[in-house]
Amino acid sequence: MEETKISMYQLYKDMLTSYLANKSEHALYHAQQFSKEMMEKDMSPEETVSLHLSVFQELAEDLPEEVVDSFDILLEVMIGYGLAYREHQSLRDRQQQLESELTVAARMQKSLLPHGEISLDSVDLGVISVPAGKMSGDYYDYALDEHGNIGVAVADVIGKGVPAAMSMSMIKYAMDTLPEQRTQPGALLENLNRVVERNIDSDMFITMMYGFYDPNNHYFHYASAGHEPGFVYDAVKDEFRNLEAKGLVLGVSPKVRYFPDQLHLDAGDFIVLLSDGVTECRVDGEFIEREQLVDMIRKYKHLTAQEIVDEIFQELEKAQEFQLRDDFTLLILRRKV
């Protein structure tokens, strides 16, 4: 420490001497570089002021008393700046720590979502889910049962960030305890509703759409808990219809009934499920219209389901200058044969 002080003193003295002699920009540049070194060595603003004065006193003999005294005021003021600087450093460290905790949590959260590809002759499945921040309040799931039924779900916790992410993991765990209801969309949502109602604050709620496709009779059965309507694409007519079902959002009331609906899918028809982060994308300051989204899907419909959702995400992300305001989830399930 003492050694550093002595060498800093010498460096500062050389720098000041050179500047006083020729007032060169070079010496000023040197001082700028030197300031980085001082910060690295944890030198506070008040120490710098004091260093300046002592070097100056040595270089310019017989400094007027007023000049020397005036440094008392500067020193006093700089103590405050020094404290603010140190506080800033400690807050920055804490922020880094929080960031890395969040990164770990986000990784854990990701592991709750399905990863493996489902490659089947019967259906083509694609999904993308991107959080606005590090953690997501969106949930999606897809799973294949022993009869070949493919269940798909998208849920959206109202809110963002960590609280939303914690609620999202609750949906995941609750889903895992209800395997036998995967082919009963109404009963599944009724059970989830009970879990959510019991376990989250009354000011939070969750919307969800769940459905499954039965490849034996080509019916898609589904139910919705106040969720953003999806779409059904009719390949023969080249038409999109809304996919919706009545039902209260999860978590509002303990006893809610959900009435499932069903529709027949022909080869090439597909189902689109989404979170409101998709329809709340803004292009040129305006929410995109559902028709615009339909146009985009139509534009890419010749691609595979995964390619469609990827392309749409990229297009919307770019249109919003890479700033997502809400978690974004888009899932497509297409009947192949």
């Binding site: 020193l75 103590i79 405050g80």
Partner: peptide, 11 residues
């Protein structure tokens, strides 16, 4: 104490 530490103590 030097002037810097004096100022710290008084602060």
């Amino acid at each position: 104490f030097g002037s810097v530490d004096q100022a710290r103590i008084t602060t």
